[in-house]
Design a protein around this nucleic acid. Structure first.
Lengths: 174, 174, 174, 174
DNA sequence: AATGAATGAGCTTTCATTCAT
DNA sequence: AATGAATGAAAGCTCATTCAT
């Protein structure tokens, strides 16, 4: 792939991410192109249709999530620190968007798989924290994961804000 | 207003609520009309444009919220019970939708005012719970309200589900 | 169907027939609409997409062909007269167009069936003429039908012109 | 012109001929280029626009036709044999396409002239056959030429097929 | 008053053509 | 000279809204 094509592709995904986050998944393709400083035709050369573009965005988000979860688990610190670190990592990322897209765009196999990896990693994270007695034991691991996901995916969450504080306190073993 | 007109109007708002909740705020007007068992023309007789219809939905939701909050406060029970009662009341209502609309559709004065009333009532509810020592005191009331909103605005929220439990536990004074 | 809708539908098919015959099956939909004195939206209300419109045209053409063939057979005149009459009927109709469409647009069951009826009727017509000793016997009936179709479908054929004269003389038994 | 440029040009016209015959005159330029194993840029280096490419195709077809007609006339065999030879020569060539293009693409002077030459040659061929008593005399030469064109321009024509047989028999003097 | 047909602006997508690499 | 990326105009189609029936 030519260097300029690569650069343009990246500009497009960045612009799309920003605009979709701000205005929803129906922003005119032309605006995305304009925001990327390109013509629509170029956008369509890189992504055959809107679906492909949205897919790219959601996949990139999941990759980021998976990598973060994996790094925290591999770091080998205290399990609860991994949970806190994960929440901090997610805060401020447009996960709401990614989740919304995951519901809108039909999932390609690639994304199914990624979603599965993320789920598995989060389950391990939560399970380890429970095993260490840091996370309350009266929740099924899957429920704890669901709680984490739900909070972390709200637009505008920030590490240390009231919601994450309450969430982490609510999850902690007494 | 004639009885049949009233009935038609109600059918329209019900259909719109259901369809917007299910398919997003861009559902074709024609589908809303069809779901209501009416022609588009009739829909437009009741609501001059899509904005007015969405507004109606969100206003109706806020009215319901305000009335519930007010009733719980007026009931005079223990303050924490009011908080739990509020969560229970909201369960199963499409508040997420209403909130989303509130961000999408420009707010008419009527809704601004309603929103203000709801905010005030929730602040009173939270303040009372803090005064009674039931709700942790290290949170600004406005932050506690934000957390409560987050609990209540999840689509599909149920009283007693994992997230509700965790967040209410996190809000409680130790 | 309302009277005005019916009228508009007919205008659309007439305009489409003329324009497609003149400029090929890719004429802008907007031009067809304009030629019919209508907006594009109306065109699309009647035909969900270009394919549906082309289909309508080709089906109408086949119906006409079938009816003509049937009438000539039922008239009970001399078999060769039916063949001549059929050629005369077809001359000047945009059958080339219909045939071209039949190759372009994927055939719906309705058209398959019509095509079958036309084929059957033409085979009967040709078979009768052979049985009567009017049409040369060294041609398989299906070949004779193919010859007839091919000539009759050329744009611009006219009854009595050189091509039809030569065709009929060439088909006649010596 | 360099040998490779020549080769590229020929590949392009061959690919264009095949694709246009198969899919109509609106095949994307990019597909023609791909079929020729080249980039679009190279295609445009050889032909300034689509019109020029189509023109090239139709001109090449007419040149072939003219040369064949001329050779048959110059061969000095029996006039009717020239007619049959002409039909045989055309079999398998996409003359229908060439004719269609001749109607679609505005004719440059070069093609006008070629067309004129072909017409003249065919008229001479037909005239000679009439003079020899082989071709029926009750047709104007131009009409006989039109019939001959019809024979020869069918896509898929083969010497000896049903239509060719019927029409040549129809043309023959009794 | 209800209906649903007509309108036309707006968005998606395609593709001829140009031009940087 | 060849390539294939970028452009933007044009065409298909959808849908909010209006208005004749």
């Amino acid at each position: 792939m030519r260097a300029d094509a690569r650069r343009n592709r990246d500009r497009i995904t960045a612009a799309a991410l920003a605009l979709v986050a701000e205005r929803g998944p129906e922003v005119p393709m032309e605006e995305i192109a304009r925001a990327a400083g390109l013509g629509v035709g170029t956008l369509y050369r890189h992504f055959p249709d809107r679906g492909a573009l949205l897919e790219e965005i959601s996949v990139a988000g999941l990759v980021d999530l998976r990598d973060a979860a994996r790094a925290l688990l591999d770091a080998g610190g205290p399990p609860w620190a991994a949970v806190e670190g994960f929440v901090a990592h997610c805060a401020g990322r447009p996960l709401a968007l990614i989740k919304a897209l995951a519901e809108t765009v039909p999932a390609p196999p690639e994304r199914e798989e990624l979603q599965g990896e993320v789920d598995t990693l989060m389950l391990r994270m939560v399970g380890a924290a429970q095993a260490a007695g840091a996370l309350r034991a009266d929740l099924a691991p899957a429920d704890a994961v669901a709680v984490l996901s739900a909070v972390v995916c709200r637009p505008g969450v920030r590490a240390g804000d009231a919601l994450t504080t309450v969430l982490l306190d609510g999850l902690r073993a007494r």
